[in-house]
């Protein structure tokens, strides 16, 4: 009896998590012009209007560029740091690990204020550059955690074999370590991209006037009221942040399979 109750409550928990999101997707295909119930028919019109909305297209481009640059910088920093922590005996490595994940431990609002005020003091004003710095710093801990976990799984003796066969450390890194590292690098980049693409709190502090990312654009649109366009935008966002990583994971798995063959 008890087990059935637990099963039932688990199903309710999953419904609670996914039903509201499913409703967003459902309503984005609703022909009703107010973006709400009742469902009056199936339509793509909100997606078409979305594609014609210049502000949203601009926000999308900003978000993509920001996410992409954040992913590259953050993953580069994160992979190098993880290599040092996993491969070498570094004195004070516990303290260093804590430092590297510190941006998660600080509330995002506080991190946002501190960076804004400090960079402003250095005469770096609200700009795309400040946004990028901010996104790099708060995606870095997640990259470090993911990459470190993956790195632990790579065996050291393959590299040692290459070295003992006469490869230089640099050759070994590019021909042995980096290919083995590829899934970790890829996972780190995806993670950083998704977090950056989704961020809103920090972005609201750092973005210059007139520049919007997709989440801040949605936020601004919500000020008026919920519109069918927001639901459509939500559906597109869900596709990007859920569909793309799932696709990425599938590709990563294929690469890994090829390597193990």
């Amino acid at each position: 009896m008890g087990w059935h109750l637990i099963r039932f409550s688990t199903i309710l928990v999953y419904l609670f998590m996914f039903l509201p999101v499913a409703v967003v997707v459902l309503l984005s295909f609703n022909a009703n012009q107010f973006g709400s119930f009742p469902i009056t028919g199936f339509s793509f019109r909100w997606f078409i209007e979305l594609a014609e909305n210049e502000a949203i297209i601009r926000a999308f481009k900003t978000s993509l560029l920001l996410g992409f640059l954040t992913a590259i910088i953050s993953t580069t920093l994160g992979v190098l740091a993880s290599l040092a922590l996993v491969r070498y005996k570094v004195p004070g490595s516990n303290f260093i690990s804590t430092l590297l994940i510190a941006p998660i431990l600080v509330p995002e609002v506080v991190l946002a204020v501190a960076l804004l005020l400090f960079l402003n003091f250095l005469s770096v004003h609200k700009s795309f550059f400040m946004l990028l710095m901010g996104h790099v710093i708060f995606t870095l801990p997640f990259v470090v955690l993911v990459v470190q976990a993956r790195l632990m799984g790579i065996r050291r003796d393959v590299e040692e074999a290459a070295m003992s066969l006469g490869a230089t450390p640099i050759q070994t890194f590019f021909q042995i370590t980096l290919p083995l590292l590829a899934p970790a690098v890829f996972a780190g980049m995806l993670f950083a991209f998704t977090i950056s693409f989704d961020d809103i709190t920090g972005t609201l502090f750092w973005k210059p006037g007139g520049v919007e990312t997709v989440p801040t654009q949605i936020f601004a649109m919500l000020r008026n009221s919920i519109s069918p366009e927001i639901n459509a935008l939500g559906s597109v966002m869900i596709f990007f942040t859920v569909g793309v990583p799932l696709l990425g994971a599938a590709i990563a798995r294929r690469i890994a399979n090829k390597q193990s063959q």
């Binding site: 920093l77 040092a84 430092l99 501190a114 710095m133 790099v136 710093i137 870095l140």
Partner: peptide, 23 residues
């Protein structure tokens, strides 16, 4: 290891720790 760590640690220091002290 310190060469590998320095970009990340410098970023954390300049973009988080020093700004926190600054506020």
């Amino acid at each position: 290891p310190w060469i590998l760590l320095s970009p990340a640690l410098t970023s954390i220091l300049l973009l988080l720790i020093v700004p926190l002290m600054f506020i």
